[in-house]
Simulated assay, not measured.
Amino acid sequence: MDAVAEVDAVIGRMRTLRSVWPPDDGVAVFNQVYLTVTETVAEHLAGGAFADRRTAAALDACFARRYLSAVDAVDDCRRPPACWRPLFEYRRHPGVRPVQFALAGINAHIGHDLALAVVDTCHALDRVPADLEGEFHQVGDLLVLLEERIREDLMPGPDLLEIADPLTHLLGSWSLERAREAAWSAALVLWRLRDVPVLAEEFRVRMDAGAGLVGRCLLTPCRR
C-alpha cells in the first residue's frame, strides 16, 4: 500500500470509529476534529499542495497510526501510552467540556506521537529529519486548522466563558505552536539517539509522561 492509500485507510478507520462512538464520548470529540483535518490533508495531497507528496502522505499516515494504535490498545484491554491515558480515562466524565477533550487529544498526539512519527517516516523512506522539515511544517500548519475548528465549534459562548471561569485559564495554559516546536526538537533528539536504543526509549518515556501530565491538567473537571 502506498503512502497516499495509507492516508485513505486511516481516514476510513476514523470514520468507522465515528460511527460506533456516541458523539458526547470524549475520545469521539477528538476523533471528529482529527478526522476533519486528516481529510483536509488528503484533499491537499490530491490537489498537489505538497512539493513532496509521498513524504507528506507517509508522515501523515505514520502520525495517524500512532493515535489509532492507542485506540487499539484500549480496545484490547492493554495500556495505551501515558499521554493518551487521561483522555480514555476521563472520556465520559460529566464535568469535562468537549473543548477540553479535544485539546487533551491534540496534546497527546503532538506532545508524544508527532516526534515518533517523524522518526517512523525517516526509517520508512530512508530519509533524515532534515528531508522532512518542509512537509513537517506544512502538515503542522494544517494542524492549526484543528485548533481553530475546536475553538469555533466547541468553545462555550461568551456568556459562559468568563474571565473567572477555570476553563479560561486551562485554555490559555497550552500552546499548539510551542507544542509543534517541541515535537520537532524531540524528533531531532530521537534521531540522534537511534543507535542508542536504551537512551532513546528513556527519552520517549519521559516525553510520554510529560504529555500525560499536561493532559490530566487539561482535563480538570470545570463544568458548573
Rank of each mutant, 00 (worst) to 15 (best):
residue 114 L to D: 03
residue 124 A to K: 11
residue 8 D to K: 03
residue 30 F to K: 10
residue 215 G to Q: 10
residue 119 V to Y: 02
residue 64 A to K: 12
residue 97 R to S: 02
residue 107 N to T: 02
residue 10 V to I: 14
residue 186 A to P: 06
residue 65 R to W: 15
residue 69 S to H: 14
residue 70 A to R: 12
residue 14 M to Q: 11
residue 30 F to H: 07
residue 181 E to G: 12
residue 208 D to W: 05
residue 191 W to E: 10
residue 89 E to D: 06
residue 103 L to K: 02
residue 53 R to C: 10
residue 139 V to D: 00
residue 102 A to P: 01
residue 50 F to C: 12
residue 141 D to L: 08
residue 7 V to T: 01
residue 164 A to R: 15
residue 161 L to D: 09
residue 23 P to C: 03
residue 156 P to D: 01
residue 125 L to N: 09
residue 98 P to D: 07
residue 89 E to V: 13
residue 54 R to T: 15
residue 32 Q to W: 10
residue 32 Q to V: 10
residue 66 R to E: 14
residue 48 G to K: 07
residue 196 V to T: 12
residue 172 G to W: 00
residue 93 H to N: 13
residue 30 F to L: 04
residue 72 D to H: 14
residue 182 A to D: 11
residue 69 S to W: 04
residue 18 R to C: 13
residue 7 V to E: 10
residue 162 E to A: 05
residue 102 A to L: 09
residue 205 V to S: 05
residue 27 V to Y: 14
residue 51 A to M: 01
residue 17 L to V: 04
residue 77 C to D: 13
residue 3 A to L: 11
residue 101 F to P: 10
residue 173 S to Y: 07
residue 69 S to G: 14
residue 109 H to D: 14
residue 33 V to T: 08
residue 201 E to F: 11
residue 200 A to F: 15
residue 59 L to S: 00
residue 149 R to G: 04
residue 129 P to I: 12
residue 134 G to N: 12
